[in-house]
Design a protein around this nucleic acid. Sequence first.
DNA 1: GTATAGTAACTATCTAGTTAGGTACAACCG
DNA 2: CGGTTGTACCTAACTAGATAGTTACTATAC
Lengths: 196, 196
Amino acid sequence: MTPLTSKQRQSRATQERLLAAAFEEFQLHGLAGARVDRIAERAKSNKRLIYIYFGNKEQLFDVVVQRSLEKMIDAHAVPLPDDLPGYAVELFDYLEERPEVFRLFWWRHLERRDTSEVEQANYRDKVARIAEAQRAGRLDAKIPAAHLFAFLLGVVQSWSLASDALRDAAGEDATRDRRRESVREAVARVTGTSMG
Amino acid sequence: MTPLTSKQRQSRATQERLLAAAFEEFQLHGLAGARVDRIAERAKSNKRLIYIYFGNKEQLFDVVVQRSLEKMIDAHAVPLPDDLPGYAVELFDYLEERPEVFRLFWWRHLERRDTSEVEQANYRDKVARIAEAQRAGRLDAKIPAAHLFAFLLGVVQSWSLASDALRDAAGEDATRDRRRESVREAVARVTGTSMG
DNA sequence: GTATAGTAACTATCTAGTTAGGTACAACCG
DNA sequence: CGGTTGTACCTAACTAGATAGTTACTATAC
């Protein structure tokens, strides 16, 4: 690490502020709905710098998504596959604490179809681990590994995915603790862990 | 039904073309990304008529969403709650045939938070039926009814929700038939139907 | 001939991206 | 050291094109 001059430090700080502001804007409004001017303003910075540092709006969006993705992957590197319900609950908590992150991912899913290297590698790795556990007989193998992982993600996200109308219908049962325990139970059942 | 004049019939036809074009535009680009000009063009009609018939872009969006929602609810009115896996598979097929419909719903979820009467009633009804079956002992009651239904929807949507990266990781297992059977099995496990 | 369906051209506003310039920090020179 | 200059960081004002919504008009069925 070369020591940074004060100018460089300031520059980095500005970039961080821009990224944070962009994250906020994009998770709220998506790519098409986001306004470059608002991002600059929110960052207490200047629009020009966005184009200098990040190229254009789309590239900024991609950088923001990529960073959030990496952060999430880093936060959940280890715990697979012998405690899938535990992993699901961990992800559930992550999601509950950061609904904005998932909003951002949905926007990307709708507005930009492409999928990054990091992401592909991550999925391949996790699916491979589950498949390995299945071959070793440590996990029920009736449902293929990739399906199992897809369902796990589906269950974990089901509440934020569901319309508010459904949440309303849940009434008292909609507290976070109860939802968490249901997620654990559901994933245990799907993965066959509850019978093991 | 009053008999329609030819003018009225033509007017209705124009409205239908506008709605169809709007559906296409909105499911592709969302509310913010949609272009009123493109909708008019696609409908081989005129922009002005959109404002006459539907008010403005947002109201048009709401009408389009509402219609799709009602169509979907009508298509799946009956089959709950004693064969939840069957219901899930039916929904799964509906989704596979009409991914655009779900894209539209996701856009709405991100871009407009409100939730319609029809939708609320629909959820309340379905959750109530499941709860009833639980009370009657026909269905495992460890997971609350609303949670069960949320998970069912999560599992059904998990594939279209998942990043393409995960689909890639599934390889040969990603055929629709195999995915359908996994959905059936997963929902059976979550709802406890497989043990019954 | 008049009300209803339809059209094209227009406008005010907004927005991504750019131009032209200013400011402050460091480095070099006298 | 004190001043000068180059350069990296930053800013405000601008532009060209797009976009939601309107106005003013024509055509056609009854």
